[in-house]
Computed example of a mutant assay.
Amino acid sequence: MYDFAIIGGGIVGLSTAMALGKQFPDAKIALLEKENSWAAHQTGNNSGVIHSGIYYKPGSFKAKFCREGNLSMVAFCQEHGIDYEVCGKVIVATTEAELPLLNNLYQRGVENGIEVAKLTKEQVQEIEPHISCLAGILVRSTGIVNYRQVCQKYAEIAQQQEAALYFKQKVVEIKEISEGYCLITNQGEYSTRFLINCAGLFSDRMAELAQAKPSAKIVPFRGEYYELTPEKRYLVKNLIYPVPNPNFPFLGVHFTRMIDGSVHAGPNAVLSFKREGYHKTDFDFRDFFDTMTYPGFWKLAVQHATPGLEEMMRSWSKALFVRSLQQLIPEVQAEDVIPTHAGVRAQALQNNGKLVDDFLIINRPNAMHVCNAPSPAATSSLEIGKAIALQIVR
């Protein structure tokens, strides 16, 4: 019998294991991961950005955890010798209509306690010479890191704290027992007094197995990236973002210098027909059926029909994708970019068609379900894990 069992070996699950081991050093902790490596899905396929917290509603969990997580992630990397860089990023307006939106974003950054600076066109081009824009803001605290390396260190620390970490353990059934829960996997059974669900793309299904009745469903969105060819990497010094469309729940196509020196361009945001569907042709009937029969999806689709269609067209047309990149850097040509990896965002959607715009943690007797932890969960992971551990009273 374990004191705590965690489902999911992404960055939030591993951080939670580590935080529990620190908070309760005598506890027996198990973590169950269905793959044979850590961070195999949402965490391991993200853009590697240490976010500042500028985008999020003041007072929200995302704003608080991201701002604090930015500092704690940098400190963690320093302490454990993980390569990172606080390189900063610019967010730019390329049309007159975007200028008031850029100012709103600047004000939000100020409200969130983030160091931001307004930039003229000329000042932007001193930082990123190849940008075409009207104005911008500089967010100095944004950084880059390899989150797979971070997860590996989290796992090592959890094991040093004597947590039991298991690979290839896919949870297929959850039973309530007198002392807590019994987790039945494809390999065996694990009994626990307290269950913590950090299953990412499958967090809603794990909550359903535990009779938690989640108030939202995961709808997977694939983000597809291109990569600048090595000879064109000089076009991007650090990170370049557009002003996000306030009516569309994604940040827009941007340029990200990775910690290995490569430069990724993207992502778009298209519905995935499989929760772990990293390719256009990936399909899973149950995942597809769940989305197509969910009223919330159709309400969302109607509300965002035009930008959604544009995202789909950009997915199938490299020319359209490149055109969106040229709004930021006109010099980029089709031959300068090659396809690279895609990621899938585990986004929770309510029945009324509203995206869950904050981290969502559902508390139940002897259980806690993290049912919405997309970006900036990686940046915020140390803070999320700490918050989960602090909520538990033994």
Rank of each mutant, 00 (worst) to 15 (best):
A5S: 15
I6R: 07
I11R: 13
G13N: 07
S15F: 05
S15K: 05
A19Q: 13
Q23W: 00
D26T: 13
D26Q: 14
E35D: 15
N36P: 00
Q42W: 02
S47G: 06
G53K: 08
G53S: 07
Y56A: 03
K57F: 03
S60R: 03
S60P: 13
F61E: 01
A63Y: 07
C66E: 02
C77M: 01
C77V: 01
Q78I: 09
E85W: 04
V90Q: 08
I91M: 06
V92G: 07
T94S: 11
E98S: 04
L102G: 10
N103Y: 09
E111C: 06
G113Y: 10
K118T: 09
K118A: 10
V124I: 03
I127A: 06
H130R: 06
L134M: 09
I137T: 08
R140K: 15
K153Y: 01
Y154A: 06
I157R: 07
A158Q: 10
A158I: 10
Q159Y: 00
Q160A: 14
L165I: 15
F167W: 12
K168R: 12
Q169R: 14
Q169C: 11
V172T: 11
I174V: 15
E176K: 15
Y181H: 14
C182N: 15
Q187A: 14
R193H: 15
A199P: 05
L201I: 06
D204M: 03
R205S: 08
M206G: 10
A216W: 02
A216S: 15
I218G: 01
I218N: 00
I218R: 03
P220Y: 02
Y225K: 11
T229L: 11
P230E: 15
P230N: 13
P230D: 15
Y234N: 09
P244N: 04
N245H: 09
N247I: 04
N247W: 02
L251R: 03
D260M: 11
G261A: 06
G261P: 03
H264T: 10
G266M: 08
P267G: 08
N268I: 01
A269D: 05
V270E: 06
L271K: 14
S272R: 12
R275C: 04
G277I: 04
H279A: 12
R286C: 08
M292R: 11
G296R: 08
W298M: 13
T306W: 13
S317Q: 08
L320A: 00
F321E: 09
F321V: 05
L325S: 05
P330E: 05
V332S: 02
V332Q: 01
D336T: 07
I338P: 00
L349Q: 07
N351P: 05
G353I: 09
L355K: 02
F359T: 05
I361H: 04
I361K: 02
N363P: 08
N366S: 13
N366F: 11
N372L: 04
T379W: 00
L382T: 00
I388V: 14
